[in-house]
């Protein structure tokens, strides 16, 4: 039985804003299954005595003092933007038309 359904792949594609054709959905579901199987294998190896690890380095409480450091200029900040207007980043319409 596959670990991930076609509907789940479709939902993930929507969340990631990737437009997939029906064929691609089927293909992705199969490929993601393989990846999830691999993860499941790792999970079997990790016993209860192995805690979930998000940060491999044994570090905590790394902070910096609340001191201002130079920012970019607006020109620098916008230099990589595909479009800008009124010293702001111009982005495509956010909500689709109803």
């Amino acid at each position: 039985m596959s670990a991930i359904s076609r509907e789940e792949v479709s939902h993930l594609a929507m969340l990631a804003r990737i437009d997939l054709t029906p064929d691609e959905l089927d293909r992705m579901a199969g490929q993601l299954d393989v990846i999830l199987d691999a993860v499941a294998t790792v999970r079997e190896v990790a016993g209860d005595d192995v805690p979930a690890t998000s940060h491999p380095m044994p570090l905590t409480n790394v902070t910096r003092p609340d001191e201002v450091r130079p920012s970019l200029t607006p020109e620098q900040a916008l230099s990589g933007a595909p479009e800008s207007e009124q010293q702001r980043f111009r982005v495509p319409r956010i909500l689709e038309e109803d």
């Binding site: 009124q86 702001r88 111009r90 319409r93 956010i94 038309e97």
Partner: peptide
């Protein structure tokens, strides 16, 4: 935001 053509972000 509804009906906007595009948005500007600061």
């Amino acid at each position: 935001i509804h009906g906007a053509e595009y948005s500007l972000v600061d």
